[in-house]
Design a protein around this nucleic acid. Sequence first.
DNA 1: ATTATAGTTGAACAACCGTTCAACTGTCAA
DNA 2: TTGACAGTTGAACGGTTGTTCAACTATAAT
Lengths: 118, 118
Amino acid sequence: MINMADIPTKCTEACCTGPRVELQLRPEEEYIQLAAFYKVFGDPTRLKILWALDESELCVCAIAELLSMSKSAVSHQLAYLRQNRLVSFRREGKTAYYRLADDHIKMILDAGTDHINE
Amino acid sequence: MINMADIPTKCTEACCTGPRVELQLRPEEEYIQLAAFYKVFGDPTRLKILWALDESELCVCAIAELLSMSKSAVSHQLAYLRQNRLVSFRREGKTAYYRLADDHIKMILDAGTDHINE
DNA sequence: ATTATAGTTGAACAACCGTTCAACTGTCAA
DNA sequence: TTGACAGTTGAACGGTTGTTCAACTATAAT
């Protein structure tokens, strides 16, 4: 069943009928990818981890201790951060050391903080 | 019932027992606020709206048409964007014109795009 | 070999999120 | 004043997400 209210109608207002800039959307996939990237920053736990890793390379255990969280929860979030290439890591014996992947991360964290504090 | 695996134990590895940088977390509220801000970018629909508004001020109808979405869905997202101060708007008769709130928005969009395209 | 520790993983559960649907407000034109 | 249109809003539905729990691997020490 079709609900007419859901079908966008051509707007009759000047903003739409008059001459205006022709806007072009990019392929859907690009928005999905980009949204997935930002989504990673959209959780307090992951932000804490990212801020911490910006100051120092850390093992899972240290992060868990710092955040008062289970190693499991932290490991899940680190896996998520890894998948989205926000962090990288190296293994040394039993221990896995994590660090920020590149410079965009800090830049985005700073821009967000600026926005909040204004 | 307490699950011991959930209580972070003091790590016995060198990374934790040795001398290391003293990390200090900020108040929980700051992370929550910041996460809420980034979360706004974490949806393809909202990204499309933001990119579109970066090019031109637009009414709800025009956005709905551009994205092939219902005015309701767009209006919900715009309300969300407004609450998080990513867009502002002015009324002119029946029509509501939306635009980006400030410059951080475009900066963050660009930084994200850079990260994806590398 | 046995035990302890660092870390990972999949399933499950509750909380959250995006769209739809239906009903509504406010403005404008006939 | 009636109807049409731009836009908003709240409830509801299904899909997603973050943490927990339990079981697991791998490395190191006794």
